[in-house]
């Protein structure tokens, strides 16, 4: 049985914030054809991931329900739904915007925080490891690639940008909870 939706909980502000994303405002034109969710490869695996439902919730301004819905992190951004939407809704971009609002409300998966920390520390989401260094050597490449990994000044530039953007704070480790 579904819970009753309380209109008093709707956040017009939340809806408008999502609509700032180009193409997300088209959510208002959605007529529920289900073309997005019926072709979704993630919905096939996990029916609780339903982008149609999420964007309908966005249109109503159901902020708390949406931001705390763990399934918003399941989208692989394959863009199939966005390609197929007859109303031109930028489904994926809208979902990414919802995630952004979640992150800025302190809601983020710990594993994603870790990936963010890797970029803050190394400039790569997937940094080099010893096994790959061996492979590189065997192939006749430099052991360490000519990226930020080889240029400390370049890494400093990346760190400066991430600091200005406030990203280092976003992914900073939470204080230990008791």
């Amino acid at each position: 049985m579904s819970d009753t939706i309380k209109t008093s909980n709707f956040s017009q502000e939340f809806r408008e914030e999502i609509f700032e994303e180009p193409g997300a405002d088209k959510i208002a034109l959605c007529f529920n054809c289900t073309g997005c969710s019926s072709g979704c490869p993630m919905t096939e695996q996990e029916p609780e991931f339903n982008i149609r439902k999420f964007l309908r919730m966005a249109n109503l301004g159901m902020k708390d329900e949406l931001l705390n819905n763990t399934y918003i992190w399941y989208c692989t951004t394959c863009y199939k739904c966005q390609e197929r939407c007859p109303q031109g809704v930028h489904n994926v971009d809208a979902l990414l915007k919802i995630r952004t609002i979640a992150v800025h409300n302190g809601i983020m998966l710990p594993v994603h925080k870790k990936v963010g920390q890797l970029v803050v520390n190394y400039g790569h989401a997937v940094p080099i490891n010893d096994a790959t260094k061996e492979k590189r050597k065997k192939l006749g490449l430099d052991e360490v690639p000519p990226t930020v990994h080889s240029f400390p000044d370049a890494l400093d530039e990346v760190k400066t940008l991430l600091h200005i953007a406030g990203f280092d704070k976003i992914v900073a480790k939470e204080e230990e909870e008791k």
């Binding site: 963010g116 989401a125 370049a154 990346v158 953007a165």
Partner: peptide, 29 residues
């Protein structure tokens, strides 16, 4: 030619999700 000092692109679905400004700043660099 090697693009010396380049970083993570950064990954579109992940970093654009987290913070668009961050994503744009590293991508533009």
């Amino acid at each position: 030619e090697e693009l010396e000092g380049a970083s993570c692109c950064p990954a579109p679905g992940v970093f654009r999700s987290f913070d668009k400004t961050t994503w744009l700043s590293l991508a533009s660099r």
